[in-house]
Structures are given as C-alpha cells and as structure tokens.
Write a protein that binds this DNA or RNA. Structure first.
Length: 487
RNA sequence: GGCGGUAUCGUCUAGGGGACUAGGACGGAGCCCUCUCAAGGCUCAAACACGGGUUCGAAUCCCGUUACCGCUACCA
C-alpha cells in the first residue's frame, strides 16, 4: 500500500466519557502515521449528542492525549459548532436531487419495523415518500408537516480500497435510504462526519472497524457533495480477555485509570502500539521515535486484539527499569506526598539519597504504586511487621532476638559501608556456624517489616546507622514482648 | 435474520509458496544466579479453526463450512 504524502488525519472522539484505551490506540496510530509521513494530526470533538456530551469529558480527552504525548496540530474542531454547514450541505444535496423529504414518523417506522421482524423479514425503508408527487410534497412542506431528509441510495455497488482490509464492497441494494437530517434539522452522524471531514480537508480517515458499515454511506455522501474521497483505514477493535469488546466490566478501560495506578505513558503507548500493529520481526520495546520510524500500514493487523494487562505491567516494568531516577522522581514524589510518607521539602532536602533509593526500588517494581509501597520503610519511623514475614523469618522469637542483638552489636562497631558491613555480618555468621542468609533475612524483617526489599546492605545504607540500629532494637523489644509493643 | 469483517501457542505477534522440526514476547512450569524480591541467563509445555481445491510443494493463494466480532435508529 502506498503511503499518503502529507496526510491530514483526525481523531474524532465523542465527549461522553473518559479517553478509552481503544480511542487512545486509534489516536496513536493516526499520530504515528502523520509523524512518519509528515502532515497534520487534528482533533474533532463530536459533541452533537448534547444529552451525553460533557465538558468534563472533553477535558479528560485532552488531558489523556497530552499525557500520552499525542499533541495535535490545529485548534480542536467542535462538531456542534458546525450545525449550519451540516444543514447547508444537506440542503445542497436536496437541491441536486441526491436526497428527498420523508414524512414518515418515527412511530410509523417503528411499527413497520416491528411488523417486518414479526414476519422474520429484514426491514428496509420502502422509499414510499420518494414516490410522493411533487405538488403533494410542496403542499406538505407548505403546511409545515415535519419531515426528515433521506439519501436516495443509487443502484450499483459501493467499494473502496481500505488501507488495512484491501477492497471492501457493499451492494447498494443492502444500504437503506438513510436519514441525514432529522425533522428538527439537526444532522445524523454520517452527515456531520462527512461534512466536517470535507471541511477539514481530511485525506486519510483512520478509525475503528466498527465504522466499516458506515463507510459506504459516507462515500455516497462525498460523491453527492462532489467532494474528493479520503483514503480509509479501519483498525481492528480491542477486546477484553473474554473476547468481547472491551468495556467497564473488564476493569480499567480509561487511559486515566492506568495513569493513576502508576503506569508510565511511554509504557502504555508502547503496549497500545503493539495491539494491532507490529514493526515486523521481534521488536517490542521501542521509543516513540523508533515507533515513528518503523510505523507502516503494512504492519497493521486485521484481527481484533485482546487487552492483556499482564503484558502491560511487564512493559511498564521495563520502562520503570530504564527510566532514570531523576525522571521518575516528579511522578513518584506526588504519590509519596499523597500517601503521607513525605513532604516536598523532605524529598528536596535529601535529593541525592532519594534518587539513589528510587534507583534501588524501580528495578523491582512494575508500577509506581509498587515503588511507593516499597518506599515506605525509608520514610516512616514506625513500621509494621508483615505477619507473613514474621511467620517465615522470625519463627523462633528468642533465637531471632538473640541474632538481632548480635547483629546490632557488630553493626554498631562497623564502618557504615556495604563491604565492611557484609564482612562483619558474614564473620558473625561463620562464628555462629550459620550462613549469611540466616542473618540477612530476619534482619530484613527488622529493618523493613517486609520479606521483599533491595539487597540488605543497600537497605542498611539507605536507612543510615542511627535509624537502622534503632529499628533493630525495636524489633528485639517487639520479639521480647511477643508483639505487644509496636516498633 | 440481513449485510460486512476476522481466523497462527491461553494472550500480543513473526511469517507474504520451499529457508517451518512454525520464530519471538507476555503469562505458566523448572533450573541457574542469589541475603529476599525483581532483573538477567537457560530449559520445557503450548498454535497454523475445519474441509475441499490450485501447485512438484501450502501457515502462506482460491472456494466452502464453522466460530467469533461489528453494523443493522430521526445514537455516535
């Protein structure tokens, strides 16, 4: 498939909820295409459904796109503002004979539809109003009888070369004479979309493949308006683990949800890019620049993809590990503050220490949430002992207390430097006829309350002698009193 | 029901007639490393929906069947 040079593309969400991952993926592909081929990525807010559209969700969409790094090129277009043009275009088609007035009421239509269903027939508008004599139409219009505008679908076939599906064809006999303007003179979706796409000079329409059956109707509209056709590309849907279209019941579907649980924008972008597209070969983790470089419609998939959060988390872990602490800090700090673990001033005061800590924690975390959780022992004075850790590493209270006391004593007289500390504790282990692990593990619980942490000497280093020693002492007391006294 | 779309490991995918004993990644199992976890390294289990063609040769091309998805409004 030839690439389109300097394409003008658009992402056209309805502001009826937050930015959905499916929408985000569509926006990403449009964006990548434009960056690869040079052109404009435009935004159109399809807010013609006043009842469901909200400013709040428009803001959420902007915010979501910005977070993902998908900037747009011109002022966003609000579909609702183009009502007059939509009407004018519809009237133009009425004037050139592509469209006719239909006086059938919704109630009548509904009745006929139900009757057809009862007969197990498929319902299609029978064009009865198109057969009305001209003077009859004129007198009804003069009498102010409400009516819609319907498109008169010609004979033949409507087809196009889809960028992802190749040729798709619809016999026109299967396309109903669809309404383009309601009786209140507001446009129907397909009318508004085509009018706007023409006005915005869109040359490539890339959207979800749930729009495939809208496409022949839209092509008919372009022709009736004498406009040049854009190229169409229909992307596969994103499904949940059960193979059904992704929805709320599959858990988080809004981009913002992932932002809030600590997914990095780069990670979800990379993950989303791989849903329905492949650069070929074994490439998986890619920077935005690499994705732009590699992007091609040839790598687009026809099949729906399942949104697997496990792989997203893995991807995020990859990004977390590769992101420098200095870049992670602005993301993690607010979460630390919200969690009540630190203030901005705390963090600023010991920046070097903080960045070192982030470097230790990021490699073993899959989300920034996990980093915050793991960071707790380094910020609070009081720690809780994880019952599981106690059960596993502090089985014998007396013996543990004894070993902790000995450990504390050695540490108190050791230079606070990893090699020296390791040497001291390994010697202690040897003297006691045991292994390092038998000392490190109980010590880890004393220091962090957890079974999981960075290497024990890193923990010691981050905690510093005063706090570490005090904490071991608290653990000893806790063990002595059988857990009655909090650390 | 009608119309349209799709079909490679559980999942994301590579594959564009012979290089396929079908590759990689996530997830799973196991081993190594090791003070825990993660990371990393290694190993294993795991797929061409089915049936017909075309061809010397089909995961790859064609047809049919099946399954799944989407659309079928004076919604978007």
């Amino acid at each position: 498939m030839p690439e389109i040079r300097a394409p003008r593309v658009r992402f056209a969400p309805s502001p009826t909820g937050y930015l959905h991952v499916g929408g985000a993926r569509t926006a990403l592909f449009n964006w990548l295409y434009v960056k690869k081929n040079g052109g404009q990525f435009l935004l159109r807010i399809e807010d013609t459904d006043k009842a469901r559209s909200t400013d709040e969700s428009t803001r959420a969409i902007f915010q979501g796109l910005e977070w993902l790094g998908l900037g747009w090129d011109e002022e966003p277009v609000y579909q609702g503002a183009n009502l007059e043009r939509h009407r004018a275009d519809a009237d133009r088609m009425l004037a050139n004979g592509s469209v006719y007035r239909c006086f059938c009421t919704p109630a009548e239509l509904d009745e006929r539809r139900k009757a057809a269903e009862a007969r197990k027939e498929s319902f299609k508008y029978d064009r009865r109003c198109d057969r009305l004599p001209a003077d009859e139409v004129a007198s009804r219009v003069a009498a102010g009888i409400p009516h819609v505008l319907r498109f008169r679908v010609p004979d033949g076939t409507t087809d196009w070369d889809d960028l992802v599906h190749e040729r798709i064809a619809f016999p026109n006999k299967d396309i109903e004479d669809f309404v383009i303007l309601r009786s209140d003179r507001t446009p129907i979706y397909n009318m508004a979309v085509v009018s706007d796409d023409i006005a915005m000079r869109i040359t490539l329409v890339m959207r979800g493949d749930d729009h495939i059956s809208n496409t022949p109707k839209q092509i008919l509209l372009y022709r009736a308006l004498g406009a040049e056709l854009p190229v169409f590309a229909h992307l596969p849907m994103i499904h949940g683990l059960d193979g059904k279209k992704l929805s709320k019941r599959h858990g988080a579907t809004a981009v913002g949800d992932y932002q809030h649980v600590g997914i990095l924008p780069g990670a979800i972008r990379n993950f989303l890019a791989l849903l329905g597209w492949s650069p070929g070969g074994d490439r998986e983790v890619m920077t935005m620049d690499e994705m732009v470089e590699l992007f091609s419609v040839d790598g687009l998939q026809k099949k729906a993809a399942v949104f697997d959060t496990k792989k997203l988390e893995w991807m995020n872990g990859q990004y977390l590990s590769r992101t420098p602490a200095a870049e992670l800090a602005p993301l993690v700090t607010p979460m630390l503050i919200t969690a009540g673990l630190a203030t901005a001033a705390d963090v600023a005061r010991k920046e070097e220490w903080y960045l070192a800590l982030l470097d230790l924690l990021k490699v073993r975390a899959r989300t920034t949430d996990e980093i915050v959780h793991q960071a707790k022992p380094y910020f609070t004075d009081e720690i809780d002992y994880d019952p599981e850790a106690v059960a596993k590493q502090w089985k014998d209270a007396a013996a543990t207390r004894d070993i902790l006391a000995a450990t504390r004593e050695r540490l108190a007289h050791t230079t606070w430097e990893p090699a020296a500390m390791e040497e001291a504790l390994r010697t202690l282990a040897e003297e006691r006829g045991t292994t390092g692990g038998k000392i490190f593990q109980p010590l880890r619980v004393a220091l962090t309350g957890l079974t999981v942490s960075p290497g024990i000497f890193d923990v010691l280093l981050m905690l510093g002698p005063d706090r570490a020693l005090r904490r071991i002492e608290s653990a000893e007391r806790w063990l002595e009193t059988g857990g009655a006294v909090k650390s």
